[in-house]
Design a protein around this nucleic acid. Sequence first.
DNA 1: TTGAAAGCGGTACCAA
DNA 2: TTGGTACCGCTTTCAA
Lengths: 341, 341
Amino acid sequence: MGAHEKNKKVIFISATIKDIAIRCGVSEGTVDRALNGRDGIKKETKERILQAAKEMGYRPNHLASCLARGSSKTIGVVCAGLDNPFFSAFVESIERMAYENGYYLNLILTHGSREKELEGIDYLAGRQVDGLIIIPLGLGEEYERQLLNLQIPIVTVYNRISDKFTHVEVDGRQIMKNAVRMMVEKGYKRIAYLDSGYERSVNLNNNRYSLNQRRLGYIDGVEQEVLGEPVIMTNYDWEPLERFLKAEDGKPAVLCPFDAVAIRVLDMMKQHGISVPEQVGIMGFDNIRVLNSISPRLASVDCEITGLGRKAFQALLQIINGDSEVREYITEYTIIEGESL
Amino acid sequence: MGAHEKNKKVIFISATIKDIAIRCGVSEGTVDRALNGRDGIKKETKERILQAAKEMGYRPNHLASCLARGSSKTIGVVCAGLDNPFFSAFVESIERMAYENGYYLNLILTHGSREKELEGIDYLAGRQVDGLIIIPLGLGEEYERQLLNLQIPIVTVYNRISDKFTHVEVDGRQIMKNAVRMMVEKGYKRIAYLDSGYERSVNLNNNRYSLNQRRLGYIDGVEQEVLGEPVIMTNYDWEPLERFLKAEDGKPAVLCPFDAVAIRVLDMMKQHGISVPEQVGIMGFDNIRVLNSISPRLASVDCEITGLGRKAFQALLQIINGDSEVREYITEYTIIEGESL
DNA sequence: TTGAAAGCGGTACCAA
DNA sequence: TTGGTACCGCTTTCAA
């Protein structure tokens, strides 16, 4: 223990196992046995060492122990950002699971950039994380190969890459189809879909499996309910939306791939003096918490993000513990009818 | 490179510097020079090594390099949770700064538990993080000593611990005082303060420096504007709130220590058919993004969370780079008048 | 320009 | 029950 000279700056370093060993007149191995509760050590020796460790303010160096053991008890989480409450709830639930299981989190935010995603993943692999939970932006064979090369347990969430990776999602396609049916049952005759974010995703050539599934579900629903041609908008322009509303051939509604879009649509309606749900129905997806504070209460789909995060972590843990089977999990959901339909 | 036997499980391990050295018939030191752009190496040798590294799929082991260098290029971030959009925006801005400066993030969520906070900090110290950014729950001499013992650069945010730590905050006291003045100028005669979360914080004996400052600012303001006794409520009971509203001796308003409270109050008003701002004014704090989607647009205080995160990171970097001066930073803010006053 | 070797702090195995 | 020691993969210094 003590002050080491380094670059002319004095840096204090915590006591090491060797320091303790010297002070107690035992070997490093013995100190290790005491500190880490391994057996084959006399009670008194152990107590003496523990006491010394405490006095010297010993703090284990995880880097060193990880290096020696080849496992870091850390998992890497990669997602786009935390601004979307869905992501933050997701990360939070994983953090909680990890903590409960003695793991820690290394978080990488990609801000929608595939390049940063790969860099981040590479970095995490280099940090010897025991596993990776990714909401992937990337896709394609090259990307798949890169991930596979890592030789690290990986669980993908939401955006599926291929059947080579254990995957967790909600069945967006089925859900959207059901949503359309429900809306029709509630009397809506025309349903538009506002697929905001889709174009950007296409431009960046990002993985949009999940977006696609939801969109396909909408199309499935429209077909099944014989509503005519799907009406898909991709931005917040008021004109086309207004045209759609004014068409006067049956009660209209707008279905959205996630809540942020629905909130924005609701706001547009308010600004143009269109009342919800009297003049138009709106439905979102994810049931983010803030919906509880907005009137009218938006219809949405509760995917139990916490459960989804838990599932993802459990699946990862299973792989880490040696299960080499690739599995796909579909998590539960509940449709929230709210007051906007 | 290759497969090592370990616990009867075959684990593939990426090529190491030694593997490359052997394959190229050079020493490990030379490989290091090539890989890390150090000088004193012939161009051809370098190219040959780089080529081999690529072919062998070399991926540096950060743990090992951190251990050897004694620095991890990682900073630890400790905060309560991500459910509050304020926190998630804060973490996100730090992540961004970190990334731009070649650092990575180790995130610990405390979920309001002081115990978990200490555990987390200890863990991060053990991971040899280069520095810590904390929104502390802890307080007191014992806690201060524990942090100091870490001998790690630390920046506290929002909740101040003592003058021993570099600290970043917005001046909640001054801001709240100004807010009260502004409200009075807008014609409000009676202003209540809904200090939700305060009692819980007292019970857990958590650091509530920031909450206190805001509350004190409110009291300062009430005194300065001669509004009589401060009216402080600590939960969402409707009765006392209703009594306050009905007192009929001047236009009432409710000031809240953060937006989540203001949103909730707005919702209560809506449910009881009280119109905002006609019958009561409401003001929050933090200007979280979702306010843009809620009507009426709540008055709030924009603390530029991003700037706050940036400042915190810069301050930390300065300490990491050897500045031993303790500094305190007050960041900018803007009062958003919104439509709720 | 390169090689050799001694660390970094812990872990794990074998011998005593 | 203990000690001794060879790693883990990378960095750094000193010599050649």
